[in-house]
């Protein structure tokens, strides 16, 4: 669970395809919560239309610099649209959705 458990299956040029990267720190409570929360959201709103990459920063400390990581856990939405950054344990679903640009239609 902690390490890159899902690889991008294919590079889809589809505009609506979500490419997500979640940076976590080991098995910290925040990290585990973030993973389960995000999984839940993705399964619910983006079923089959997303690629999620989970990276443990502890394992790749150099990435922290290149990706401008400060606060963790952090989710980077690479596509579609502009890059967005979300931090926190993803417990605020509304904000996550807003950050990902998903219109729930509620």
């Amino acid at each position: 669970m902690t390490e890159q458990n899902r690889f991008p299956l294919a590079d889809t040029d589809d505009d609506s395809h979500y490419r997500l990267r979640l940076f976590i720190t080991g098995a910290s409570p925040n990290s585990t919560r973030a993973i389960s929360n995000l999984n839940e959201i993705c399964e619910k709103y983006l079923k089959g239309n997303y690629t999620l990459e989970i990276i443990d920063v502890h394992q790749q400390p150099a990435i922290a610099r290149s990706e401008q990581i400060i606060a963790l856990p952090m989710l980077i939405k690479k596509a579609p649209g502009t890059e967005r950054r979300l931090i926190g344990d993803m417990s605020d679903t509304e904000k996550v959705l807003k950050g990902l640009g998903i219109n729930t239609g509620i």
């Binding site: 940076f23 720190t25 910290s28 925040n30 919560r33 973030a34 929360n37 920063v57 502890h58 400390p61 922290a64 610099r65 990581i69 400060i70 606060a71 963790l72 856990p73 952090m74 989710l75 967005r84 950054r85 979300l86 931090i87 926190g88 344990d89 993803m90 417990s91 605020d92 904000k95 996550v96 807003k98 950050g99």
Partner: peptide, 14 residues
């Protein structure tokens, strides 16, 4: 976007 609890572990690691 802040979506809940977080920490500055990233900065620490960096």
């Amino acid at each position: 976007e802040e979506t809940g609890e977080y920490d500055l572990e990233g900065l620490f690691i960096r």
